[in-house]
């Protein structure tokens, strides 16, 4: 009788679904508890207060030493992740927009070279590209004493890339550089890899956005006497941006998630440090939970922003 009525059926299905989910959860949790006890692995997040005991190769903002807590180590990892993500996003957006616009150029060389760039970068896995850049920096670059200097103040060597900052320019002292900002080979490889890879996807988004604007808009603007540049700036781009922003934000999120590949080339991002922590304490579940919680927070924040944007800024 319950299953005769449609409403009854719906309730039954949902009850069954909840039941199944609860059963699975119970099954997993009870097994896990038993296994953890058998292997004498601790539970809980108490370990965060304990001394970490390992060094971290580089830290973007915070100071850290081996006697600091695990929690601090993880926070350093997080700031490292954010550092490479933010700079990567800025570089990728600039490069990607340029290439996207180039794809629409009337110039044959510009159009086809940028198309080739996009095709190549999109069809090779990011991990391969990261390993490639790391190999370029560590194998092909000369030592600091013979460092390449493509621009004044910028030095490329196999110990990393050195750039001038507001506080000073890098100078060679002995076997290494002092002053300015130093990008370690790991950071540089990760940054270049992420930026060039994501730029290819952003290029396609920009191109699609501009093509999405109705042809008549450009024609009307030209008929009114607006120049090509004015038309692009005042009529096409504002409309294209509304189509571009959602998928662009999605790419930003991808770049941030992709920065987790840092663990493969030795850059101490959040995943890297969480991995080390898990290996040392044996508390894998807590470690993975932390990683997932952090990334989920970032993704959900960006989704929330996107929803706000769609509701308020998109075309009525």
């Amino acid at each position: 009788m319950v299953w005769r009525s449609a409403r009854g059926r719906r309730i039954a299905y949902q009850a069954a679904a909840i039941g199944a989910a609860l059963f699975v959860a119970w099954f997993l949790i009870s097994n896990t508890a038993a296994n953890l006890e058998e292997r004498r692995i601790a539970s809980g997040f108490g370990f965060l207060g304990r001394e970490a005991g390992f060094e971290i190769g580089e830290s973007a903002f915070l100071r850290y030493g081996a006697s600091d807590s695990y929690l601090r180590a993880l926070v350093v990892g997080l700031t490292n992740t954010l550092a490479v993500a933010v700079i990567g996003i800025v570089l990728a957006t600039g490069l990607g927009t340029t290439i996207g616009l180039s794809r629409l150029s009337k110039n044959f060389l510009l159009r086809n070279l940028s198309a080739a760039y996009v095709e190549f970068m999109r069809n090779v896995p990011l991990l391969v590209q990261l390993f490639f850049w790391y190999a370029v920096i560590t194998e092909s670059m000369p030592g600091p004493r013979e460092a390449l200097s493509p621009l004044p103040g910028v030095f490329l060597s196999n110990r990393g890339i050195f750039v001038p900052t507001f506080s000073g320019a890098p100078e060679l002292q002995g076997f290494n550089f002092v002053g300015g900002a130093a990008l370690s080979p790991e950071f540089a490889a990760l940054l270049i890899g992420l930026a060039t890879y994501t730029a290819a996807f952003i290029a396609e988004i920009v191109r699609a956005g501009i093509l999405a604007v109705d042809r008549g808009q450009g024609e009307a603007a030209h008929a009114l006497g607006l120049s090509r540049g004015q038309t692009t700036r005042l009529v096409i781009l504002p409309q294209a941006l509304r189509v571009i922003v959602p998928p662009m934000t999605s790419q930003y999120l991808n770049l941030t998630k992709n920065s987790s590949l840092a663990v493969a080339i030795g850059y101490p991002d959040l995943v890297s440090i969480a991995n080390t922590t898990m290996n040392q304490t044996g508390q894998a579940i807590e470690g993975i939970a932390i990683i997932m919680a952090v990334y989920l927070t970032i993704s959900l924040s960006i989704s929330a922003f996107m929803n706000w944007y769609n509701a308020h800024v998109a075309f009525r």
């Binding site: 997993l28 097994n31 896990t32 038993a34 296994n35 953890l36 058998e38 998630k257 992709n258 987790s260 590949l261 663990v263 995943v271 991995n275 898990m278 894998a284 579940i285 993975i288 990683i291 997932m292 990334y295 989920l296 970032i298 993704s299 959900l300």
Partner: peptide, 22 residues
Amino acid sequence: RGVPLISLLFMASVMLPLFLPS
């Protein structure tokens, strides 16, 4: 979709054995 693939691989690699009966 909100977490990196790596964390899922870690999860499977490390946690799946824990999820199953000993």
